[in-house]
Amino acid sequence: MKTIALYDEDAFAKDFTAKVISCDEVIIDDQKLYKVVLDKSLFFPEQGGQTSDIGRLDDHQVVDVQIEGDTVYHYCKGGFLIGEEVHGVIDWNHRFSNMQQHTGEHIFTGLAHNEYGAENVGFHLSDNTVTLDLNIELSEDMVENIERKANEIIAADVAIKAYYPKQELLGAIAYRSKKEIDGPVRLVEIEGVDLCACCAPHVKSTGQVGILKVVSYEKYKGGTRIYILCGLRALDDYNRRMKLLAKAYRTLSCKEDEVPDKITSLMDEGKQLKYEINEIKSGILMNQIDSYPSDVSDITIFSENLDAKIMRDGVNALVEKHDGLCCIFSGNDDDGYNFVIGSRTRDCAAIAAGMRELLGAKGGGSKQMAQGSVNATRNEIERTM
């Protein structure tokens, strides 16, 4: 049965009354829901890269809406009698946010097409993320240019209209579409900016988008993936970032425009301190190595917080003096150990393989030296070695 799509007629309607055509109990992700078909619906189903509307039918929450053919299915937390009349209310904040994002995407991709010949090959709108994929690589200047012009169009409050042109006229209309469409084609037009096939609800004019902000972008499958936020979502994201920035400059005791230099300075200081600490650790380890009599064949050292280079240097120093198996383990019984083993006379690769088999160690190496990690206690390691 074809569901009358009220969302197609009025994107700003918030509630409606409809008759229940069918209601079936279903289990989805171990949750009992009711799959409800109505004769008409204001709930926009998931399609066109956009997640569905949510809301309520009478007192029951609508958590998802899908479309199969021409039939819209509402997944509800409660059921209804066939023939029963129900009152539906969509979550308006959710709907309006989605409309802001989707119209913003049309503005951006329309401009990308007009300015640089880019084609939109992908779009995803969820409750957390808005991405659009273009088939060409955009530079930073190109992205900033599109973003600036998009916000100028938003400020100009250009009217937006959605309509179904007559089928016989469709071939003469130049519109964007990510795929071939069978049957009637719904066009969303932003005059002078974009004309695109689209099934989703949109705002009435570009001014209702509020603002469009490019959050980030990246190379993707030979083109560019753009992350955007519009309207109230952009405001929420801006406020979140400003709070993080304010916390950063208060913590660093500097002005906000000094934060990058302050962080760079702290990172440089940290690198220098790490170098100095490692020099001290290396010196302590080498003193320990020098204290072992040269006639002792096998040497195993347990320590903490040694980096891989210090451990390798230490094993090399041990191998020069001792002809048996030389091992350094860094870590503790709770978190496990990193290790480096070396020898002039023993096969270290074979020993590492034995540790993998007996202790579940990871890693490997050559006959002369091997390294890796093992989640075992010191006693277990000593018994195995």
Rank of each mutant, 00 (worst) to 15 (best):
K243R: 12
N375L: 14
D194T: 05
L6N: 08
N287E: 15
G372A: 13
G48N: 00
D24R: 12
I154C: 07
S282H: 12
I277R: 11
I190M: 07
H202I: 12
G364M: 10
D141K: 01
L6C: 00
E140Y: 02
E168K: 11
D30L: 10
V185I: 14
K281V: 07
K262M: 07
I351D: 09
C199I: 02
F44L: 12
R186C: 13
V319I: 13
G210R: 09
K271R: 13
T345W: 06
D307T: 06
N375I: 15
G79T: 08
I181Y: 02
V63T: 15
K255H: 07
R225S: 04
E9H: 09
I228A: 10
D91S: 03
G122E: 03
R95P: 03
I82Q: 15
N305D: 14
S265E: 11
Y220C: 10
I280T: 08
P165C: 07
Y116K: 05
E357F: 12
D70T: 09
T109D: 11
L212R: 03
K161F: 04
A234E: 09
T224C: 07
R186S: 13
I263V: 15
C199Q: 08
A162W: 00
G117W: 00
G110S: 07
C326E: 13
H202M: 11
V130W: 00
K179N: 08
I82D: 14
Y164K: 03
M1V: 06
L134I: 11
N278Y: 08
N145S: 13
C326T: 13
K178W: 00
F339H: 05
L232T: 14
Q61S: 11
K221I: 05
H102V: 12
G171Y: 05
E382P: 00
Y75N: 08
D53L: 02
H106W: 07
K35T: 02
T300N: 05
A248G: 07
